[in-house]
Structure formats: C-alpha cells, structure tokens
C-alpha cells in the first residue's frame, strides 16, 4: 500500500452557535486515509461537512477534536501545505490582475522563485486552455474561465496533492470534460487528487475511491467498485426458463431473453445465495456466470445516506 497523503483520525469540528444558540457539530469523529496516487472523491449532501473537512486540512479552520496529517505533516502548519494545491469552492481573484499576474501572485505567496513562476504560469495557462487570455484582466473572465484559472493556480509548483472543491461548478459540459481529462492526467502523472463534488457521475468516472459524509459523519467509503456493488444483490446468467416455472425460488426474477437469461437474486448471506443457485440448477437452468449486482454511484449514495438517516 502507498504511503498516506491525507490521514485524519477522529477529526471533529464544532462551531459555537452564538449567543443562546445550540452549537453546530459540523464534523464528528471523522477518520479517513487517502493514499499516494489516488483520485479520491468526497461525497455528501449540502451541509454534510465536506468543505469543513477540507478547510480543516488546510488550516483555514481549527478542528476541535482529533488529529490529521497532510503529506506526513500535522495540519495547521505551513509545512503541511507546501506541496498542496487547492481550488476552493468559492474563490475570487483580484479583478485588476491579469491571469499571468494572478498566478504569479499566488505562486509568490507559496514561496516559488521568479524563474519558476514565469515558466509555470505560461505552461499551466496553456494546460487549462487560457493561453490566449494570459494578459487579460481577470475581471473580464467568465465563471468558467475563472474556474480554469483557479485550477491553474492549484497546479502551480507541481503539487503532490491537489484538493479540488467542486471544480466543475459553473463550467459548461465541454469544460467539465476538459477538467475530467485534467484530473485523469494528474492521476497518471502520480499526483494525488482529492475531489469534493456533488456531481456523482463525475466522481464515478474519475475517482478510484470515495467516501460519503452525512451530517458530519462518515457513512460509507471504499473503491468505486465496492460502493457501486449492491448489497445482497447478485446476477446470474444462464439458460432461460419459462416465467411460470415451478420451483423458481422466491427473490429471483429473470429476463428470459435468448440465448442467455439474467437472473436477479436477492440473498442476505452466501449460504442463502448457494441455496438459491442450487434451486435454479434443480429447475433446469444451466448457469454461465454469477456476479454481484451493480448500482450507480448515485443509487449507492442515495441508499447509503437514507440508511444513515434512518439509523439516526
């Protein structure tokens, strides 16, 4: 296993609610590990605590409990942020600066020297499709262009970890695709990407692992394949049988298309699955393959969040 780039242990954040108001628990006992080279997605409904977690990692807010490290350094220290690029959900660059000047300024605040700032600015503006707008003032940029500039800013200095908070917000479909390609390119070049998004289809397309936050608590995490695996649901392919065939076990439905029919099986345990498959064979079905049932990330997200809310 690669070394952890982000490691949070029982992280918590409580905001005081102000005079005579109840405190707000934005993050509760949140533990998470992101390994080097991963594209990790953090999902959750609005107000789940996603941005709070990112802000805590970057030292913008202070956690009230637990601990965390970024690239092996305790969060809150400047050293933990040196090899980290960040695109906030809401960001506003000074309108009087040109794109090149804005990149130069933020790279300067990161401590990069002048020659590297200049060459990096030109290279990255080209990478995000803003090369011809390099000397245009930021105040003339559209929201999508501002987002691309924010991405270029996050990539200055060749960071080991890039944290993107809703990177496709306000970007048109073509721009979204370009940002997805950029994330894939980053991943291929070994950069760890931490993606915070509510666009589940995007997370499903680009992320290797994801975690789901609800009401400040971690309610699910795993690889995209694990998360999209429907629990207790299986699919078996085999020879078709008549719909009304006696002996087809309860909990099994099927599409009787030739040459292979798909049998959808609901089984809560491996023993139950084995028994159901045995009944299918007894009913005259020749089985070709058995796989776990699939669901979209969106279905998984809705089900996991609903289960968590029902448990509360």
């Amino acid at each position: 296993m690669h070394d952890p780039v982000v490691q949070a242990t029982s992280l918590g954040k409580q905001y005081s609610g102000g005079f005579r108001a109840k405190p707000i628990q934005a993050l509760s006992d949140f533990s998470l590990t992101v390994h080097r080279g991963e594209v990790f997605g953090l999902l959750g409904p609005n107000g789940a605590g996603k941005t709070t977690f990112i802000k805590a990692l970057l030292g913008v807010i202070r956690p009230t409990s637990g601990s965390a490290t970024l690239l092996g350094q305790p969060i809150g220290t400047p050293a933990s942020r040196f090899r980290v690029g960040y695109l906030p959900e809401q960001h506003r660059f000074p309108g009087y600066l040109t794109a090149v000047q804005a990149l130069d300024l933020y790279a300067r605040l990161s401590g990069h020297d002048a020659p590297s700032r200049k060459s990096e600015s030109v290279r990255l503006l080209g990478r995000v499709g803003l090369a011809e707008w390099a000397d245009t003032k930021v105040k003339k940029f559209s929201k999508g262009m501002m987002q691309r500039l924010g991405l270029a800013q996050a990539l200055m200095g060749d960071p080991e970890l890039v944290i993107l908070d809703e990177p496709t917000d306000g970007v048109d479909p073509i721009g979204r695709r370009e940002i997805r390609d950029l994330v894939t390119w980053l991943s291929q070049s070994g950069t760890t990407v931490f993606l915070n998004s509510h666009l589940l289809s995007e997370v499903e397309m680009v992320c290797t692992r994801a975690a789901i936050l609800n009401d400040g608590k971690l309610v699910g995490q795993g690889s995209i394949a694990e998360l999209t695996t429907a629990p207790a649901a299986y699919e078996a392919q085999g020879t078709p049988v008549d719909a009304g065939l006696p002996g087809l076990p309860d909990g099994v439905t099927h599409d009787g298309e030739l040459p292979w029919a798909t049998y959808r099986i609901h089984a809560d345990s491996p023993e139950e699955l084995t028994a159901m498959l045995g009944q299918l064979i007894k009913a005259g079905v020749t089985l070709r393959q058995v796989t776990s049932g699939k669901r979209t990330l969106e279905q998984a997200f809705v089900e996991i969040v609903a289960d968590a809310e029902a448990a509360n």
Binding site: G59, V60, A79, V84, P88, R92, L109, G111
Partner: peptide, 13 residues
C-alpha cells in the same frame, strides 16, 4: 471575505 481568505490561508505561510 470567504471567497479570498480560504485560498490565501491555504498557502504555506
């Protein structure tokens, strides 16, 4: 303001 300080404080200074 929120739209500026988050990015500024995320820098390693």
């Amino acid at each position: 303001t929120e739209s500026r300080i988050g990015l500024l404080l995320s820098k390693p200074l």
